[in-house]
Amino acid sequence: MKKWTNKLTGGIMVGTTALSVVIIIAIIVVMFVVIIIGGKEQISWKFLTSFPEDGMTKGGIFPAIFGTALMVLLMSVAAVPFGTITAIYLTEYAHENSFLSKCIRFAVKTLAMVPSIIFGLFGLGFFIKFVGDGMDHAFLGGHLKWGQPNILWASLTMALLTLPVVIVSVEEAIHTVPGSLREASLALGATKWQTIRKVVLPGARSGILTGTILAVSRGAGEVAPILFTGAAYYLATLPHSVSDQFMSLGYHIYIMSTQSTNVDQTLPIQFATTLVLLMLTFILNFTAVIIRARLRRTPK
């Protein structure tokens, strides 16, 4: 009797887990198929390299691609060195259980959990209203230049959002550098900093790269942090300096599906833009996965 119920429970469990797997895969497949079918007609070299036309109902998305690329570049320049330095401090200098290192770890975890719109509001309040306005008053006699949304503030806001990703990846990579190599370096009379610079960081290179890629792929898709801090509805020209606004892929999708003059007419463009963004993040994530797998394979 017991055997029979055991078998039944087992069967139900296997069925449920299998069903969950199927549902998850189905969602991804359906999403991809719908987006590819909807966007494939629109995707062309011209679409990728030209400006929007006719109130964004025609033309391409080049400024959005350019803006996204420039934004993630500026973001990486800010987030990667800062995140790497933090990771070095946490792994090499701070004592595992010291109050300060616990505080930093808690802060990093919290930062990773904060909803992205909060980062947007913070960017608006801190970078634009506080830093930007302050700079205008201090250097430009109140002339409005930095106290408004631009690509610099947007990138810095995004850097805050992606900082935890960088810190965690670099920390993980530094942990894979064997302690025996640190010992070898120190035993040769190297200082701690020489050891970090010449042995630990080169060993963690691929981890730093992985962190950068993950941060870029996260930053490329986020809209909320740049909503108030620099993304523009439409611009006739590309940004000329970091104090200009910019167009971005994610924001472009959002405005075309909610703010467009003719939502139905822009539908193919929406699909195509989504496809571009999806492929971009997919490729970036895939690259990160490959690098990470190779990193794990290197013998300790």
Partner: peptide, 18 residues
């Protein structure tokens, strides 16, 4: 640091740098 320059060490498991 200077002390360790004067006193070298070879470890149980060979540990060349990559």
């Amino acid at each position: 640091v200077n002390l360790r320059k004067k006193i070298g060490m070879v470890f149980q498991k060979s540990n060349p740098f990559a």
